[in-house]
Design a protein around this nucleic acid. Structure first.
Length: 582
RNA sequence: GCCCUCGUAGUUCAAUGGAUAGAACGGCCCCCUCCUAAGGGGCAGAUGCAGGUUCGACUCCUGCCGAGGGCACCA
């Protein structure tokens, strides 16, 4: 790692000068590429203690650095208020281009979590309800974080937790029970069956809200769902559950997620209830108004939460508590990541406090990540009112906007269809992933679905463009083995326009970005980087003829190939496909 | 009322305590006899308010104003 090398270099220089060692050697990328590749603020940090001005101290440090400057560094200079800027050498930059080509898909991966068992839970749709755009959001984030973590060498397992019991199921059955026996569309295509169920849920919810009698009925149904004493309820339930799960599987396929484990509330519920009852006796929980609750420490901002309600049924809290243990029994993880909507952030804090008492070893290994809501300009979307945007409908909408834009490049209709789907998924996923996890995403169906600029299709387009150039370079191989004139240019070679330097100066950063994004669970860092790289390449493309008669053409092709590789790898880590043509 | 999160160009977002606060969309002006114009080049435009800490604050602390979420039997 070049960054580690530089830190080491700085450290040795500071030691040699007898300077007090700071806690950390701080190294960053200057915000503008022309300033250099790395910068350290050590002179500014240490200046006061030494009693010198930052500039004076920087000069001294630089003089020391110059004594043992490695060949990866072109020059070291003082800049601004006292930064020490490092410019990497052409040799390093071109070596790195070569490394990208040699390592291919492995470039950017690291071994920081080698062999660690990590389980990540996300998407979590509920059978009997729609797979809506909120689930799409959870899936996009979870899948990308999964891939980032896997890229650090972990043994990662994807888990999906699905609510196959509970009031939402009772509501759906509330409306299904009113239908004649032969009303289920058992012969219909899967998608229609799923839509039928979604519709039934919406109707059931409205019924539920219509009066106390209906609420009572739903409550009774909920009991029957648990105890399985009513044949008609069982039949409707089993049919609905199967339809939902089968349908969800088709969506996971489209989105590119393959789960390793499925967990269900029907399993976590009884188990979690048992755990709560056991610890009720041990004093962790207490009874209150017929329910079993955990009294959170209000001084720590924790709420009191119900774990078993007064009807003796486990709530989501008890289920999730049980789930933590069920997961561990299935896959003894070193870390467990749970991705949900951020409206349960406070609740999860309580859950972690409970886990700290009940399963202390698991609590320490669990991290909750709350994401925001996918909002439409009109406000929060809801599945309770039936006014819900399903993932399917959004995908169809976006695909229909993309399809006409696909230029005829000798593709078959089928190929065009696949590309339209890949670009649509890319557009949606990127719009979710390009901002920090946690906040709401404003998704304007009519106006904001943009395929230009900072978007998934822009990155995909740039990749396809680079691949196109490479495929047209018949007889020319990407090749780094060429001579550079040493007489011109700030970097020592004249063929380099500034934009080309930019591409090279960004390429080697890929593995740093991957490592950081994986550590921070922050796919948006990768999006920002990929957009920057694609933009730099497009500028380069615009002002340079890559395939030409001159002797440097093979190097330009190598740079193009390396860019394509990193874009492809980066898109993969976002969970987005990289079509060869579009 | 209490707790959490968040206020950055007209809009949607970036910015491990660093340099001239970056993009994208929208607006205006240019660029296809040339490898994919879903592209490129240029112009205009922003840190809610008031203090504090620091060599240095969008970032940390305090207060105020504003937005979203949560505050026991939904998930």
């Amino acid at each position: 790692m070049i960054a580690e090398e530089l830190k080491d270099l700085i450290k040795r220089a500071l030691e040699a000068l007898g300077l007090e060692m700071p806690n950390e050697i701080h190294l960053e990328h200057p915000d503008e590429l022309v300033r250099g590749d790395y910068a350290t603020n050590m002179a500014m940090v240490l200046a006061k203690r030494v009693g010198k001005s930052p500039h004076e101290l920087a000069e001294i440090i630089i003089a020391k650095l110059e004594e043992s400057k490695p060949e990866t560094v072109e020059k070291v200079e003082i800049a601004g208020p006292g930064f020490i800027n490092f410019h990497l050498s052409l040799k390093f930059l071109t070596n790195e281009v070569e490394r990208v080509l040699k390592m291919g898909d492995d470039y950017g991966r690291n071994q920081s979590r080698q062999g660690q068992k990590i389980i990540i839970e996300f998407t979590d749709p509920n059978p009997f309800k729609e797979f809506h755009i909120g689930h799409l959001m959870s899936n996009a984030i979870g899948e990308s974080i999964s891939r980032l973590i896997a890229a650090t060498g972990a043994e990662l397992k994807r888990a999906c937790y699905q609510g196959d019991v509970g009031m939402h199921v009772a509501k759906t059955l509330l409306s299904l029970m009113e239908l004649p026996d032969d009303a289920l569309p058992v012969q219909a295509p899967l998608q229609e069956k799923a839509a039928f169920l979604g519709d039934a849920y919406a109707k059931g919810s409205n019924l539920y809200e219509s009066g106390e009698g209906e609420k009572q009925k739903a409550g009774d149904l909920n009991k029957k769902i648990y105890d399985r004493t009513d044949p008609k309820v069982n039949k409707l339930y089993d049919w609905g559950r199967e339809v939902s799960l089968e349908y969800f599987e088709t969506i996971y396929g489209k989105l590119g997620t393959k789960f390793d484990h499925y967990f269900f509330e029907s399993e976590a519920g009884p188990y979690g209830k048992g755990v709560v009852e056991e610890w009720l006796e041990k004093g962790v929980f207490e009874k209150s108004d017929g329910a079993v609750v955990y009294k959170g420490d209000e001084e720590e901002g924790l709420h009191t939460r119900v774990f078993i309600n007064s009807q003796d049924l486990p709530t989501y809290e008890a289920k999730e508590l049980g789930l933590a243990k069920i997961k561990y029994d299935k896959y003894p993880y070193e870390h467990s990541l749970v991705i949900t909507g951020n409206e349960i952030n406070d609740y999860f804090r309580v859950l972690l406090a409970v886990m700290g008492e009940v399963f202390p070893n698991l609590a320490a290994k669990t991290t909750h990540l709350g994401h925001g809501m996918l909002r439409l300009p009109s406000g929060k979307m809801s599945s309770r009112t039936g006014d819900v945007i399903t993932a399917e409908s959004l995908l169809t909408e976006v695909r229909s906007k993309i399809a006409p834009k696909i230029v005829d490049r000798g593709l078959t209709e089928e190929e065009k269809g696949i590309i339209a789907e890949q670009v649509a998924v890319g557009a949606i996923k990127y719009s979710i992933l390009h901002q920090a996890v946690g906040g709401d995403i404003i998704f304007d169906l009519e106006n904001s679905v943009s395929f230009e600029g900072d978007s998934g299709p822009y990155i995909q387009y740039t990749y396809a463009r680079a691949r196109s150039v490479l495929s047209k370079a018949k007889g020319l191989d990407p090749n780094l083995d060429i001579e550079y004139p040493s007489n011109a240019g700030p970097l020592g070679y004249s063929m380099s326009k500034s934009s080309e330097c930019h591409v090279e100066r960004l390429l080697y950063r890929f593995h740093e970005i991957v490592a950081q994004a994986a550590t921070d669970y922050a796919p948006h860092q990768l999006c920002t980087y990929l957009h920057q790289l694609a933009s730099a390449f497009n500028t380069y493309y615009g002002e340079t003829k890559i395939i030409d008669e001159d002797s440097d053409s093979s190097y330009r092709l190598a740079l193009t190939a390396a860019t394509a590789q990193v874009l492809k790898s980066g898109l993969h880590l976002l969970g987005i496909a990289a079509p060869e043509k579009m």
